[in-house]
Nucleic acid binder design. Structure first.
Lengths: 203, 203
DNA sequence: ATCTTACGGGACTCGCGAGTACCGTATTGT
DNA sequence: ACAATACGGTACTCGCGAGTCCCGTAAGAT
């Protein structure tokens, strides 16, 4: 017994240790296949084959498909730096562009595919937390910073506005099968975000 | 032969005709179950049971699960009237509220669940066309009308702005499992749409 | 040297649900 | 009356993929 999670055991593990390289290969293959085929259609056999291993190696590490996919999602948790470029517009652009870059594209594709797993609260939570939240938080932070600096009116509904960008990105990926392009990103900033943040209708 | 589509046959069908009431019952049961369980987890046995019939009656009408779900989606194709209430704000509110009403909620839930079927282009197209497109078109028409009337600047990216609302609604339903509430709808109009439509930054 | 565990990989069990076949019965047109 | 078809319902086939088991082998620990 104590076969699971030997890394947590007191005894530093006797015998051959698990290959950390293989660990990473499996997680990457998982993202690859899940993005390509979808959650339901992703076969563990294929994931194993692409990782150059067998299913046994997978089940030795994770209890099942769900756990594997969650781990894979968390593994590509992206950093979402809060930009500070001196102007509101530049900061917004930097945030929105986070949804345009190729790496973010992969993350969005994963999120897309995990729309399938909507019923599985555990998966949904893990994915939105590791993929969706950080960039949205960055945008919220930026807005709040410019409120503190007096550029943006404090009465804007920050939550709603900062959710606008992820919403559009998600919508485009899931329903239209296309990512956010640069032109749309700029239009989003100039024609939607800035007007919403600047124009306080006191009239 | 000529067993399929007897309604298209020259001979007006000999023998017992199909029950149109049953037809409707099956379609409604399909929506019910699919919304409740998701596309993949929706079992034809359960749909048949809830419709008070057997699987045979289903396969007598549709060739398979996919076709059935498409038919069910098209069956609840909602009308999306283009409002004309005299003010831009009122028209926008009417459009956005279309995503708040309970019937629209069901439609959105269905769309949510069909995010699962993202890989199946046929299903996706059928659903977005029958559920998603009409209300979005209504919003676009409203904006274009107020452009013609001179209230809204012609340079606003109509496509982008009118896609904002469905995006937010979809995002909320799929990822947060909650519909659009009245307060959010109003905030969307007052704090996002109106600023984007009114404020043309010429400065 | 030996023990222990991981490795690739093949073969297997097992549950599930779509789709099919057929029953006896009900309902229409001719 | 009779033929043709739909009806509710049950039992079946069939393919698929998650998860299990076991093999011979490779590699760190003692």
């Amino acid at each position: 017994m104590a076969r699971v999670s030997p890394e947590l055991s007191d005894t530093p593990a006797a015998g051959r240790p698990r290959d950390p390289v293989l660990e990473q290969a499996i997680l990457e293959a998982t993202v690859e296949v899940v993005v390509e085929k979808g959650f339901a259609a992703a076969k563990l056999d294929e994931i194993a084959r692409r990782a150059g291993t067998g299913k046994a190696a997978i089940y030795r590490r994770w209890p099942g498909k769900t756990a594997l996919v969650i781990a894979a999602a968390q593994n590509l948790r992206g950093n979402a730096p809060v930009p500070d470029r001196g102007s509101l517009r530049e900061d917004l652009l930097a945030c929105v562009r986070h949804y345009v870059s190729p790496s973010a594209r992969a993350a969005l594709m994963l999120a897309n595919v995990l729309a399938e797993a909507t019923r599985d609260g555990e998966v949904r939570e893990a994915v939105t937390a590791s993929i969706g939240r950080p960039p949205a938080e960055a945008l919220r932070t930026v807005i709040e910073r410019w409120i503190a600096r007096g550029t943006v009116d404090p009465s804007v509904p920050v939550e709603l506005v900062s959710l606008l960008v992820p919403s559009v990105a998600f919508h485009r990926v899931v329903l239209m099968h296309e990512g956010l392009d640069e032109a749309t990103a700029v239009a989003l900033v100039d024609d939607v975000l800035l007007p919403a943040l600047e124009a306080r209708r006191s009239s």
